[in-house]
Design a protein around this nucleic acid. Sequence first.
DNA 1: GGAAAGTGTTGATCGGGATCAATGAAGCCG
DNA 2: CGGCTTCATTGATCCCGATCAACACTTTCC
Lengths: 279, 279
Amino acid sequence: MRAGSHVNPTQKCDLCPIQHRSVCAAADGRIRTDLNRISHRRTFAAGETIVGEAEEAGIVGNVVRGVLRMVRTMADGRQQIVGLLFPSDMFGRVFASHSRYAIEAATDVELCCFDRAAFEALLVANPDVEHEVLLSTLDELDAARDWMVLLGCQTVLERVAAFLIIVRHRMMKTASDGWMPGPHISVPIGRRDMATYLGTTVESISRTIRAMARRGVIRIIDAQNFEVVRWDRLVALSGREELDFDGRIAGPQGHRHLADAGSAMRQTVAGRRVVEMEE
Amino acid sequence: MRAGSHVNPTQKCDLCPIQHRSVCAAADGRIRTDLNRISHRRTFAAGETIVGEAEEAGIVGNVVRGVLRMVRTMADGRQQIVGLLFPSDMFGRVFASHSRYAIEAATDVELCCFDRAAFEALLVANPDVEHEVLLSTLDELDAARDWMVLLGCQTVLERVAAFLIIVRHRMMKTASDGWMPGPHISVPIGRRDMATYLGTTVESISRTIRAMARRGVIRIIDAQNFEVVRWDRLVALSGREELDFDGRIAGPQGHRHLADAGSAMRQTVAGRRVVEMEE
DNA sequence: GGAAAGTGTTGATCGGGATCAATGAAGCCG
DNA sequence: CGGCTTCATTGATCCCGATCAACACTTTCC
């Protein structure tokens, strides 16, 4: 179970590819030693469940390699992915006995796991670290609300475009290795997961991606790899100009006039509005 | 601007109806004095904007009376309400210079406002209080993800049913006064806001509520007040059995078989599935 | 090797709900 | 009081995207 427990604890983190991200980055010498003590690496194959829905979740941790999905399954089988976790993201729910969502390996993954109780104790004992957790939780909350907007009032075309931009963004942040610019997007998950994440179906995903390629916005290398031919048009299709050309999230700014005109525009709200792709 | 600044600071909180909720409940004597010092009451009429989208948000605080809405407006005018804030809920975004969403008065409201920088300093100086903020932020994150499920894969009927249950739940928590059981639901917002919150239109909201009344699930007292005739059916319509008959959120438990059958059911996912109302 | 299962694509059809349009009721104000 | 605006409701129509179905391709496992 405690794979690698024979490894020198003071070295585990030093070899970790994400040691300069996540809570680990906030942990100085002594705290890092503590983290070392309660952490252990585990690997899961794609499809395996790390924490079941409604299960007593005894562990939290962060993703070292691969992608996790947080899935909520309803009684009749409908599912919604409420979050994808990339390397350096934390998984699990601190300060609650169970996760409200299943956590599953979307790809083969390598995780750095902490005993939840021990990790919580460490947080309480180290306000600095807990502060970092608060900051990242606030960011996650912002992201979740952004996703609510996407699910609540954007078309499938917009969702797919936004998804591609965000994947690119996340992969860039992750790729500590040189790999950087270039118009390449590598989607780490299949159509099924995309659909479950975007609140649509595999057929719609497939058709939408094909349409974007047909219109020259992207080029399809294979089912999971794309080359962005026209960033500007991809961003336009996403319906969110705050996702700038590099996929960076720019703070909402600029279009102040909109908020001002808010109540005046409220008469036309709520509906889907197709942003047509020019032929 | 600082209305009521002449009031004895050590008494403001003692008269506050929500002094035993929110961060205030976590504040003991000395800290409460600090809170007193940096807080001031403000009132806004329904429709007024407390914090504009992308605006420098200098204040945070909590709702004393009334309801706030957090609204995201897209470039073309589409809107999504990403959260409603009831009495004792905190508003505003700590540790970020601007809110990513507008905060508006959905009804006439009374707020207890803190200077954001001062409040942040108080948090950093008092890990106990910051811990409470972390806990409530985690709860908000869970709620946001629940809403993602609702927006991503539930029908309008299910959304409206879930909304009514949740409103009842929130009003019960708020009503520190005796008012409790009874089959009464008082919705504090209009059709427009409901639609913007549920990712649908006013017409669909209206039709759905009428249909629920026609089938004897609820009785319409007036546009904002309903009597629940059959809680069991309302809960069934919501498609979420974890919202129990009292509207309390029960931890996901019981249907373990579902999570187990997860991968087997994944073939049938993603789609809307109408839960018909029996005639 | 071949059967079986999973994944991605494409076509045909259908329906939930958005959109457009019109009416009544209720508050606001000169 | 009579315009004026906002809100809720109801009817008619349309369309995006879900659903059903079929097929190629790949991977897995006897």
